[in-house]
Simulated assay, not measured.
Amino acid sequence: MTAVAVVPAYGQCGGSGWTGAAAPSSTATTASSTRATTSTAKPSTTAAPSNTPAPPAGITTTLPASAGYTALPTASIITGSFDGHMVKFDRKGSSGDCEEQTETGEEDAVFILESGASISNVIIGKAQAEGIHCRGPCTVTNVWWEDVCEDAITIKQTGAGDVSTINGGGAFHAEDKIGKLYRACGNCATSHERHVQVDNVCLKDGKEGTGINSNWGDTAILTNIKTSSKPSAANVCCAYKGVAKGSEPPKIGW
């Protein structure tokens, strides 16, 4: 794999009034974590994990081994913290099963995290449409998507000080949203200024790394990004023009 380094480490990509480098780069992930509290709504497993596989060390492009499997009939709502012990969960046979690129909604997620909740050590199987939905700031640690299908994770935080963190994990076989690793919504009913940090990530056979709306003041800080040349260096960080709901945000640069 090739390390992308068009913009210096911790370089800025976009933002109101920003006139920096024309070709953003490789660099940084994750914002500071939120603290989760109690745990509820833990899904039961069909196979109790007696020996939980250890999380992978360093960057890997191989899906970890699972410690069991559960098909959930409805989305599991997490209000505190949930450790899946590397069990695989999906929505096989339910309304939340994968429908390829058909747009679905929160009810088709595998897990719904309430504001401040956290989830860790989970594999999300290929029979799912929406992966994880966070209703506010959330923390996602060592979570893997066997097949992204339509969406991997949707974060709906709206507060000016809200921060979500994704630590470790990986996602495979994405046509859309992780064909773009990160995309700030560019045509939601209400627009918000968003800031993302991406660090120590391997991008393989994707379309874009990050997508931000520069006219809304969004920024992206990228460090330690490796790519297979897909996405290309020019597409590791992309700028869009945010628009009103019902329109399609145009790509305006990188």
Rank of each mutant, 00 (worst) to 15 (best):
A54Y: 00
K42L: 07
T62K: 12
T61L: 12
A65C: 10
P56N: 06
T40F: 10
A54W: 00
G11S: 01
C13A: 00
A65R: 15
A48Y: 00
P56H: 03
W18G: 06
G15S: 07
T27W: 02
A54G: 09
S16D: 08
A21C: 09
P55D: 13
P8V: 07
T46R: 06
G58Y: 01
N51E: 13
T62F: 13
V4C: 01
P49Q: 13
Y10I: 07
T40K: 04
C13K: 00
S16T: 04
T61K: 11
Q12M: 09
V6C: 08
A65S: 15
T2R: 07
T61D: 11
G11Y: 00
P53G: 07
T60H: 02
A57S: 10
T27D: 14
K42Q: 11
S44Q: 10
G20M: 00
S39A: 13
G11Q: 01
S25H: 01
T30F: 08
V6G: 03
P56R: 00
S32W: 15
P53A: 07
G14V: 07
A9Y: 04
A5E: 03
L63S: 03
A57M: 03
S16E: 07
V7T: 14
I59N: 05
K42I: 09
A57W: 00
K42W: 12
A23K: 06
N51P: 11
A31T: 00
A47C: 15
T62G: 09
P56F: 05
V6P: 01
T37M: 10
T52I: 09
S33Q: 08
Q12S: 05
A28E: 11
G17W: 06
S16R: 11
N51Q: 15
A31L: 01
A28P: 11
T40L: 09
P64F: 03
S26Y: 10
P49A: 14
P55G: 12
A48H: 09
T30H: 03
T27A: 15
T29K: 11
A65G: 11
T30L: 08
A9K: 05
A9M: 05
C13G: 01
A31C: 00
A41S: 14
A21L: 14
I59K: 06
P24M: 01
T40V: 11
T46G: 13
S33T: 10
A21I: 11
A5W: 03
S25M: 02
A54H: 02
V7I: 15
S25T: 04
K42H: 12
T37E: 06
T19Y: 01
A3I: 10
T30N: 02
S26V: 14
P49T: 15
A41T: 14
T37H: 10
L63N: 03
T46D: 09
S39N: 04
A31G: 04
W18C: 04
A23W: 07
G11K: 00
P24W: 01
